[in-house]
């Protein structure tokens, strides 16, 4: 029974790989290019800011935020993280979120808004996940108490 089970697992995996490989393979290119380069990153950040402004769960965090600076720093940050030709010149994640009492729920809500923004910009699933994977570790500097 167990052996048969393993066989079925292998079959399932083979099927999965067939499905995924059928998509155009873009793994070799830079994440920055997968996000659409400068134009793409700017579009993602702008969509993201619209989503944040509309999100009643967390928009109260941003009432006093200098949106122009926030937008500029986010673009720099996403560009630099994804291997683009930028340098992040903003404050550290720890400094810029200190004392805001951001909990995991707020963090999740913001991540969800970013995902929605990337969906809207038609960013491929793999590229979305890669950017999220680069941002996720920042939770430890942003969330008040894990």
């Amino acid at each position: 029974m167990y052996r048969q089970g393993m066989q079925q697992v292998v079959m399932t995996l083979a099927l999965f790989c067939a499905v995924v490989v059928a998509e155009p393979v873009v793994a070799a290119t830079r994440l920055y290019d997968q996000l659409g380069g400068e134009v793409g990153v700017v579009a993602i950040v702008d969509q993201f800011l619209f989503k944040l402004a509309d999100d009643k769960r967390i928009n109260h965090f941003f009432v006093d935020t200098n949106v122009k600076r926030f937008r500029e720093k986010l673009i720099e940050q996403f560009c630099a993280l994804s291997g683009g030709p930028c340098t992040y010149t903003g404050d550290s994640m720890q400094q810029s979120h200190a004392g805001m009492d951001i909990n995991l729920a707020a963090f999740n809500a913001l991540v969800e808004d970013l995902i929605e923004a990337m969906e809207q910009c038609k960013v491929a699933t793999g590229a979305q996940n890669r950017l999220l994977a680069l941002l996720a570790p920042m939770h430890q500097d942003i969330i008040e108490k894990p």
């Binding site: 699933t125 793999g126 590229a127 996940n129 999220l132 994977a133």
Partner: peptide, 9 residues
């Protein structure tokens, strides 16, 4: 795991 094989979670 975010972005595992082929960028899939």
């Amino acid at each position: 795991w975010l972005a595992g094989p082929l960028g899939r979670n």
